[in-house]
Design a protein around this nucleic acid. Sequence first.
DNA 1: AGCGTCACCCGGACGC
DNA 2: TGCGTCCGGGTGACGC
Length: 233
Amino acid sequence: MPSPKKFKEQIRGEKIIEVTRRAKYFILQLSNYQLLVHLRMSGDLYIINSSEKPEKHDRLIIKLSGNKSLVFNDTRKFGRVWLTANPDEILGKLGPEPLGKEFTPQWLFTSLHKKHRQLKPILLDQTFLAGLGNIYTDEALHIARLHPLGISDSVSQKQAKVLHEAIRKVLKEGIRRNGASIDWVYRGGEFQNYFRVYDREGEPCIVCGTPIQRLVVGQRGTHVCPECQKLTR
DNA sequence: AGCGTCACCCGGACGC
DNA sequence: TGCGTCCGGGTGACGC
């Protein structure tokens, strides 16, 4: 993000050509630049009438034609905005899209075996695979019956196939249910009502009834069924 | 180079 | 009740 002054100079007069997405980034293709937006945890992006009063946590307001404004609101200031002519500097290192063609069971198996890392951190690594966050990783690993501390290159072909399917399944379900609203800053989603393990410490596993355990893996709260997700050697 | 760890941020939840 | 502390998310910076 350039200085506010430079940002204003650069974006003035730009036209929004199209809006796309890569991983967790919005991409607004402008005439001469790309405006990238990452909402992180608490960010939101919406259109208002320019006459409306700013909300408390509005961080960026871009005036549009037709008396409209594009608002970036972000309570926790975790979100990020970039105005750039070289989006590859930000997006270039991202791994494949989990819902894209490149992401196949064979790709997953081969890629997991190129590394020797714990499953949870590698799945959260956006340069490995772009799009899984903490919730979806826990959910996918539970479906695949794999322990978050399992090691990437010990996953079998068959397990990779199941994990591949699980990742796609949880992402599609998350999308279908408009995401998860686990905190007052996350709004509108329904996926939190269908969690298998995430945020369910002590509650019964929906598969076997064993109480779900919470542990910390790579600084992240991690939820696991100790019965379904055995850590093998 | 590649991986693990930490800081960033804030309002809500919790404990005293 | 009020105050202090902790927590959680994703990622870039940092360090080993």
